[in-house]
Amino acid sequence: CVIAHAAQYSAEDLEIFAVQSKLVEDSKRTDYDFYKFLRLPDGASSDAKTIEKHYRNLSRKWHPDKYRDAKTKHRAEKRFQKLSLIITILRDHEKKQRYDYYLKKGFPQYDKATGQFIFGKRFKPNLILTLSII
């Protein structure tokens, strides 16, 4: 049977963590984030229009259909897959808010021993978040 990661996080949170941790892991830069990936100099304060514009330009560049050679196509595909998940999160107001929150306060660490995301300090993100969103 399947072990759910950590009960205290919502599915949206886990989706955000999964994309973020993969991004950091692959880039080997601990300070890497969605906005840097989208080449947005203003980070989280970029407006929706600019985010869309950058997304579209990067799509034109990275979409695997733009490449014929198998090797470059594969590389483009890997990048585009990340781009796709990131834009899905940033387009969703609630998810973007959550992401920005964690970006500011720090992401939980993935605990290899338990297979869960945990915070170093005592912290209940869901309660605060829910309140802030409400």
């Binding site: 049977c1 399947v2 072990i3 990661h5 989706e15 999964a18 994309v19 993969k22 799509s59 695997p64 595909e77 890997k78 585009f80 897959q81 781009l83 796709s84 998940l85 834009i87 899905t88 297979g115």
Partner: peptide, 15 residues
């Protein structure tokens, strides 16, 4: 409505 191609990874363990 997620743009394709896309990919997501999750980790599973035993119970």
């Amino acid at each position: 409505n997620t743009t394709v191609p896309c990919k997501i990874q999750t980790t599973y363990s035993t119970a």
